[in-house]
Design a protein around this nucleic acid. Structure first.
Lengths: 303, 303
DNA sequence: AGATTACCTTGAATTAAATTCATATCAGGA
DNA sequence: TCCTGATATGAATTTAATTCAAGGTAATCT
């Protein structure tokens, strides 16, 4: 007999395409999922997946059950929200601070979706630049920080969001355009255009250039479009998230190249005080980020 | 973590109002349901029921979960139907024979609802009177018989529907109008108006009059309204299901009285060949009867 | 071609959880 | 006050899900 557990697994498999990843998403082993799905298939006497070398592809029967899963899981979430509301536990503050400039790109639709579902929660985005965003949690000025820093103590929890690749962005006619991969040494002598934040907060510098002992001239701009404009007009190069440059690359405005052999990746987390980590609205805020970003952002990988 | 199992139980509790009955509906013990519900209440930190001496009453939180259960369970049923359809297993014949005249009263809406959900199943109602409806199953002329007879062999299964009370129907000014309960002896000398079926098929005769050694003059009519007309115009008395006479009683057209101390009850079953009993469309046909009748018919009791 | 990697599957062992059993408890009606 | 008809509870049991430890397979790299 089918249970919500199966539907949760099904949804996770659809999200990730792979049993291993789905398993960690639902806090099970990959084997458990395999057993679960096989049991479902036996129960209904129909294959739900086509097993390919690189994961699972849903069959029509699988898709129908997936549709059920999607419907059902939101119905359950809605009901649970209403139960909290009946208890009067659905309210709270959620002041958000961003460690990364680029998070602005996807945060607004997330906040909108969230506000629709948790009208009693006061969501706010802390404006301006913060040298030490995690400190805002300690001082009680924010409840949630999005960034790649992990919290020090055990009073705070990092809820994994996703990882994205940071690409080197070059003008179209750049001397390095023929290389598929850009190495640290290649960049010697370039000007690096970044957001106006300290060096330690720039992944390319911290993880690639500094270890290689390379120091570039730096120039800053506030907005992503401004950075891209500067790159396009040959004032320097930049390192930006995959999804942020995709459109401009497609328009041949700039070119983007992988950095190093495996690429330069950044892991994003939502850091919250441990006391808040279990609150349903926090959990759901994180879920919304994950699902909206997985759906809307190219080439990211859920953590 | 909530599971469909909980929702199924919740729905059963709502249907029956009592843990014991709900338990048998979902094939569990009363204790299991009690544990289940307590676990749910603990999980959500909210009471789902108000425990009264006579069963459970849903609190608002309980009602919200019940609503979820209702939505979700139909979504699941829909999906499972579609899975069968994808397998091409959703078709079949369902020719229905009625042992009881009064079943016509509720069968049509049931058939309509069923046709909507299982368009691939050929549903038909066998017309006319059948002296031995169960024989129709054996001869392959019908797949399902509705009535109170239980099948003899183990090639056939009786799926329980509901029990209803048969009331004595009397003209408004009848000499027995002052009695709350009608006993067999009271009826001596009356004319009994029935459908045109053999004596053994009339519960009042088989279960009440014959044991008391009383034989009444009999007169027959095809239609329920015709019987009621005859009763109203003092041509005799009748014995009809609770729900069938309610409206006429409310209009003071006739009066209805309980027969014997505990009333005269009839248990309805759907009898099908064992091979068909597990088919999902058969199960659902029975479910539709049960739920539509429970909702639309006064004073019946699900079996 | 051979090794490596990144998947999924399988069966047995284990662990966890749900269910039953056997009472206990409780409320209302005669 | 004592039935009757309900639900609650705790321990024992049973059932079912999960993990563990290998095994298999196909694609990719060298």
């Amino acid at each position: 007999m089918i249970e919500l557990r199966h539907l949760r697994s099904l949804a996770a498999i659809a999200d990730t395409g792979k049993l291993v990843h789905a398993a960690s998403q639902v806090h099970l082993t990959q084997s458990a999922l395999s057993h679960q799905m096989r049991a479902l298939e036996e129960h209904y006497g129909a294959a739900l997946f086509q097993r390919t070398g690189a994961g699972l592809r849903f069959t029509p029967a699988g898709q129908r059950l997936l549709q059920l899963a999607r419907e059902t899981l939101v119905a359950v979430a809605d009901a649970e929200r209403d139960l909290l509301r009946l208890k009067g536990d659905a309210g709270g503050d959620l002041r958000i601070a961003l460690e990364c400039h680029t998070c602005f790109d996807w945060l607004m639709p997330v906040m909108d979706a969230f506000r629709g579902r948790w009208p009693e929660v006061e969501v706010d985005l802390l404006a301006g630049f913060h040298s030490d965003p995690l400190a805002l949690l300690q001082s009680g000025k924010a409840e949630l920080v999005i960034g790649s820093q992990k919290p020090r103590g055990r009073d705070y929890v990092a809820l994994p969001l996703f990882r994205f690749e940071i690409l080197a962005v070059l003008p179209v006619e750049h001397r390095l355009r023929a290389k598929r991969r850009i190495e640290a040494a290649d960049l010697k002598g370039e000007t690096l255009i970044t957001y106006p934040v300290p060096e330690e907060r720039i992944d390319l510098i911290r993880q690639v250039l500094k270890p290689a002992g390379i120091k570039l001239t730096r120039r800053t701009a506030e907005l992503t479009v401004a950075i891209l404009q500067l790159v396009a007009s040959r004032r320097g190069i930049a390192a930006l998230p995959n999804w942020g440059v995709r459109n401009y690359v497609d328009l041949d405005y700039v070119i983007a190249r992988r950095i190093g052999a495996k690429g330069l990746w950044s892991d994003l987390h939502a850091v919250v005080p441990r006391a808040l980590a279990g609150r349903p609205y926090v959990t759901e805020f994180v879920d919304i980020i994950r699902s909206k970003c997985a759906a809307g952002l190219d080439g990211i990988e859920l953590l």
